[in-house]
Amino acid sequence: MLARDDTAHRQLPHRVDHLLIADMVAHGARVLDVGCGDGALLELLGERKQVDGRGIEVTREKVNACVARGLSVIQGDADRDLDKYPDKAFDYAILSLTIQATRRPKPVLENLLRIGRHAIVSFPNFGHWWIRSQLLVTGRMPETANLPEPWYDSPDAHLCTIRDFVDLCRLVDARVESKVTFNASGRQLGTWLPLTLHNLLGEKAVFLLTRR
């Protein structure tokens, strides 16, 4: 059963933000993936970087499936359960496409920076030109491939733009070590581009942070 699930899993293409995160993480690091979902990132990090990985996931079925696949995952919630972890318990605390679904993103990010020597955060960019144009043209909350649910059904309570996130980083004293944005086809945008263009053209972003 373990083997079959593993294989089934590997046949899926890796998510672009996962691959970018895997590039950022050092070999053999201790990693906490907050909101680890089906465990795809933990598995990728285990394979490519031999990390000592742990996960937190809110949906019970996903947790149980992760543990059955041999991953160390607990049922929990980024808003509630991060307080319990000691300072610098991990080399990297990761929040991949999850921060927008937390109730209080600021304390979650602060906890992430406290628990991990580094924090890695990926999120969908609400400042992307397509979203802006949809809002402008239709006058309604945009629905895209990344934001498929109508606003009243969406778990994404705290969507933000890349610029908003940069501001939050400043607010919580986080130093941006690197940031990568990429467009819908998964192509990275040049790091030399100004923030305004990243914010306009980047569909998603991945930030590597440390506490100042």
Binding site: D52, L71, V73, I74
Partner: peptide
């Protein structure tokens, strides 16, 4: 138990079976 183990950064999985 899980929270105590988290507090010492132990390697822990936690499953609640329905």
């Amino acid at each position: 138990i899980v929270q105590a183990l988290n507090a010492v950064a132990a390697n822990v999985s936690f499953v609640e079976v329905e």
